[in-house]
Amino acid sequence: MNSKQIDMIREDCSLVFSNPEKFELLKNESILITGGTGFMGSWLCESISYLNDVHNYRTKITVVARDTDKFYEEKPHLAKRDDISLINKDVLDIIEIPNNISFVIHAAGTPDNRVHLSYPLEVINTIAKGTMRVLDACTRLPNLKKVINISSGLVYGAQPSEIERISEDFISGPDSAKSTSAYAEAKRMGETISSVYMGQFRIPLINLRPFAFIGPYQLIDKPWAINNFINDAINGGPIKILGNEKTIRSYMYPSDMAYWILTVLCHGSSGLILNIGSSESYSLWEVANIINNSISNETLTITSTLNRKTNNSIFVPDVEKAKNEFGLVLTVSLKKAINRTCRWLTIR
């Protein structure tokens, strides 16, 4: 990572965290983040670091991850900070959490569907048992104020075509008889486990259901359409749309994601379930066009390669609850998110 990329992220944080008094509850507190070196964890570290540096929050972060060496290598500006300490540990090996921890964000578990399909049992194990490990350790914390379990928007199963945006009270689920549902089913189980710990051990807990994101720290080799489009465009195109160009998705920029998560951490009540994502839906064709225009390469073309009919799936959250209960809105449009992502990836 170069200094310009770090500056861009800092700029994103300064724009979204313009009302720091909202997060005063976090001042002088200690937050533990499992999976803290991944996309979501890194943005949470960036955001809290910003609050510490600019608004003197003095919030301590403890990051639990399987490969902290990589974190040192790739994000030394975070890994070497005094207010961030690292624990190199698999979430399955967690027995004790440092006693000073008052907030926990459980974000361990990769959303990479290549891993879900190749290692479904390991994925189930990490999510289900890992959640139990973390929550077990939480039961022994003397000053625990709140836990956020990062679930997934995939717990709803396939979004019915007649529903434009899926809300938190929609009860459905993935096809439990398919091994391809391993991640989504494990996330559902994670929510059930959370509910049990809330009831049985009185752990104050919130389940968040993230949808899709695009922004810095997201690797463009990830197997999601928008990442591939950006990769194609940066490599000079053409942008290839595999499958159905009418597939509908929405994307949230990660500074908004971090802002939403920390807002809910401070102000959400135990038992809350909330979607995290953008409700602005776009077809893949529209997304590819926005990327094409963003890169501004006249020779770039968009090709939709498949000439047979496929189902056009939808994966878009209803975020009215976030707006009504917490005043949460999107501050970064998709166009701006793509612009900043492309710039971040290419800036030297």
Binding site: S179, P223, L242, T305
Partner: peptide, 13 residues
């Protein structure tokens, strides 16, 4: 079909 879905997820076109 399951194996093909895996390959698709890895990025096979």
């Amino acid at each position: 079909v399951g194996e093909a879905i895996k390959m698709e997820s890895y990025g096979a076109e």
